[in-house]
């Protein structure tokens, strides 16, 4: 890798945009065909990976794009999951309604808590988000009338994607529902990445004072992306409930936040699919290796080892996502001359 290769992404994109589509088409085809080849458990794992990928994308919006390292996205994931579970049990089994409700409530909670968090930067922001995550977790444990405490909420009916469609009982069908929602949200984030809004967020990451000096109300931008990332995490939480048909405080817990951050960091290069690849790697490591006899019950050890290994061996994977305003280049897709 040449030292400045990361900066040539735009050039590379122009030169080989057709060639670059090939892997994307192959991944899409693979995702579409997976349920016909894989067993039920593997398909469930794939669904969970897609959900975690959405959560990692949400982390990446803050950490990679805006430079605000967060450990609190599990909070909004959990809020979305509980919202969807309550809507599913009390109101309707229509998936779209659950998704929208989860995204809306999570966006609301994220905006309210973000109002405090975006006052801070750097480590203080990280600490605040960690604390927010922990507080939502303890609310999930203690607010028993709403969440049923540590027992969690079960008895969630199978999801009906759109009104009039049949309830999805089979893992393979749920997977297609998750995949469809995933693709829609992925496209939305991809669109966002090319807008002036995303450029402004990169500007905040690089040099917030300068952004103010050219007239940007930076805190409003930070709060907006925080709320949006919260909505995305909330939607992921709703999908999680459709897959698991169960929700417990652990789904709003620290481990989920750490997994999502790790996925975003490993995928890191700032490209959107990077976070998804990171999510796949993290979840497969946890799920499959964790089930091996040797490491039976030591999932956490494995995860920790993965964290440590990632930091030392993937510095380039980390560079694009780093918080400090170093001189190394970025890799969030940059829009080049088109005029």
């Amino acid at each position: 890798m040449s030292p400045n290769s990361g900066t040539d992404i735009g050039t590379a994109a122009r030169a080989g945009s057709a060639a670059r589509r090939v892997p994307a088409v192959m991944v899409l085809a693979g995702l579409a065909l997976a349920p016909f080849v894989l067993g039920s458990y593997a398909v469930g794992t794939l669904s969970r990976i897609l959900v975690l990928a959405l959560l990692a994308m949400s982390v990446n919006l803050l950490t990679g794009l805006t430079g605000l390292a967060t450990l609190g996205q599990s909070a909004y994931f959990g809020v979305g999951a509980y919202t969807a579970a309550i809507v599913a049990r009390k109101l309707t089994d229509v998936g779209v309604v659950q998704l929208l409700a989860a995204a809306a409530v999570s966006a609301l909670v994220a905006t309210a808590t973000g109002w405090l968090a975006v006052r801070a930067r750097g480590v203080v922001f990280l600490m605040l988000t960690l604390a927010i995550g922990e507080i939502v977790y303890s609310a999930a444990v203690n607010w028993k009338s709403l969440t049923n405490g540590t027992d969690g909420m079960s008895g969630i009916p199978p999801v009906v994607p759109l009104p009039g469609m049949p309830a999805l009982e089979l893992d393979g069908l749920v997977y297609f529902y998750v995949l469809a929602v995933f693709l829609v949200l992925f496209a939305m984030v991809a669109h966002l990445a090319g807008t002036p809004f995303a450029l402004a967020l990169r500007g905040i990451r690089d040099n917030e004072d300068r952004m103010r000096a050219i007239g940007y109300p930076t805190r409003r931008y930070a709060l907006t992306v925080y709320g949006g990332a919260g909505a995305l995490a909330g939607a992921a939480g709703a999908l999680w409930v459709s897959v698991q048909r169960f929700v417990s405080p652990g789904d709003a817990g620290f481990e989920i936040a750490a997994l999502a951050l790790l996925a975003a960091v490993i995928g890191g290069s700032g490209r959107i699919w990077g976070a998804c690849a990171g999510a796949a790697l993290v979840w497969l490591t946890r799920d499959y290796l964790g089930n091996l006899e040797v490491v039976d019950g030591h999932g956490k050890l494995l995860l920790g080892a993965l964290f440590v290994t990632a930091v030392y061996t993937l510095p380039r994977g980390l560079t694009g996502i780093r918080v400090p305003r170093g001189l190394r280049s970025v890799a969030w897709p940059s829009r080049k001359r088109t005029a």
Partner: peptide
């Protein structure tokens, strides 16, 4: 904005 291109700097 060091990581952005000259064009992006002005575009902002």
């Amino acid at each position: 904005f060091m990581r952005e291109t000259a064009l992006e700097n002005v575009l902002l």
